[in-house]
C-alpha cells in the first residue's frame, strides 16, 4: 500500500523528462539497422534480420541504457537538492531505493516491448511473408530483460552515489566494452554479467527455434552468475544508500 505510493511519486517525477525518446532510441535504431541488414538465413526468412537487430540492440545499447535510466531517475534529486526532501518523508530509505529500481525495470520493459514491435515492423517493411516468430522474439526479449537486472542494480548504486549524470555510464562503458570480446568465449561469457544481455538474447532466440547459437556453454553458469551478481549489487547498493549521510 505505502510502497505503491512511493512508486507513483517516482513515476510522476518522470513527467517531461523526455524519457520516451530514450526508451525508443534503441528500438528505432535497431529497426534502421534491420532494414539495411543483408544477413540472410536460408531456412528462415525472419532470422537474419532479427539476429542483426538483436546484436545491435543487446551488445552495447542495452547495457549502456541501464546506466542512462539509472542516472535519469536520480538526476533531479542531485541537481534540485531534493534527496534531503525525499529522505525526510515518512518512508524507509529502502522503499525509496526500490521504488527507483522498479521504475527503471518498468522503463526497461517498455524498451524491450518496443524492441519486440520493432523486429516485426522491420520484417514487415521488408515484405516478409512468413508468420512473425512472436514467441521466439518474446523469449529473447524476456531473457534480455532478466540479464539486465544485475547491471541495473549496479548502475542504480552508482547513480545514487555519483552526482554527475554521465558518471554511471563511464563505469558502464568500461565494463560493457570488454563484453563484446568476452561474449565470444563460451567459457568466460557466462561469467561476465556485462556479456549477459547479448548472450541471453541471442541464445534464447536460437534455443527457442530449436537450435543452439553456441554462445552459451553452460546455461547454469549464466543463471548462477546472473542471480548472484544481482544479489550482490542490490545488497551493496541498498545498504550503502541506507547508511549514507545525506547533506
Amino acid at each position: 500500500m505505502m510502497f505503491s505510493n512511493v512508486l507513483k511519486s517516482e513515476w510522476l517525477k518522470l513527467k517531461h523528462s523526455k524519457v520516451v525518446f530514450i526508451v525508443l532510441a534503441s528500438p528505432v535504431l535497431a529497426t534502421i539497422i534491420g532494414l539495411f541488414s543483408t544477413m540472410h538465413v536460408p531456412e528462415h526468412q525472419w532470422l537474419g534480420t532479427i539476429t542483426t537487430m538483436i546484436l545491435a540492440h543487446s551488445a552495447i545499447f542495452l547495457p549502456l541504457l541501464t546506466g542512462v535510466f539509472a542516472a535519469l531517475i536520480c538526476r533531479h534529486e542531485h541537481s534540485g537538492g531534493s534527496w534531503k526532501q525525499v529522505l525526510t518523508l515518512p518512508v524507509s530509505r529502502l522503499q525509496i531505493y526500490f521504488a527507483k529500481f522498479i521504475v527503471i525495470l518498468f522503463l526497461l520493459t517498455l524498451t524491450q516491448t518496443a524492441f519486440l514491435i520493432a523486429t516485426w515492423v522491420a520484417g514487415t517493411l521488408k515484405g516478409f511473408s512468413d508468420p512473425f516468430p512472436f514467441v521466439n522474439v518474446l523469449m529473447s526479449v524476456g531473457v534480455g530483460w532478466l540479464a539486465c537486472l544485475p547491471l541495473i542494480a549496479l548502475q542504480l548504486w552508482l547513480a545514487t552515489m555519483l552526482t554527475s549524470f554521465a558518471g554511471p555510464s563511464v563505469v558502464n562503458v568500461m565494463l560493457t566494452f570488454p563484453a563484446v570480446i568476452i561474449a565470444n568465449s563460451p567459457l568466460f561469457g557466462p561469467l561476465y554479467p556485462w556479456a549477459h544481455p547479448l548472450l541471453g538474447m541471442t541464445q534464447a532466440l536460437s534455443y527457442s527455434l530449436g537450435g543452439d547459437a553456441g554462445f552459451l556453454d553452460s546455461a547454469v553458469t549464466f543463471y548462477v552468475v546472473m542471480i548472484s551478481s544481482l544479489a550482490l549489487f542490490t545488497v551493496v547498493g541498498s545498504v550503502h544508500f541506507q547508511r549514507r549521510e545525506w547533506v
Binding site: S9, L12, K13, H16, H76, G80, W83, Q85
Partner: peptide
C-alpha cells in the same frame, strides 16, 4: 517523520515539474 515538516538549507525542487506537481510527488507519499 510522519508528523514533521521540514525545509533544510536551500530549497529542494524538481525543476522540470510544475509547482503543483512538485507538491503532488510528496502528497502521494504523505
Amino acid at each position: 517523520l510522519k508528523q514533521i515538516g521540514s525545509l533544510v538549507e536551500s530549497p529542494s525542487y524538481y525543476p522540470h515539474l510544475t509547482g503543483k506537481d512538485n507538491l503532488e510527488t510528496l502528497r502521494k507519499i504523505l
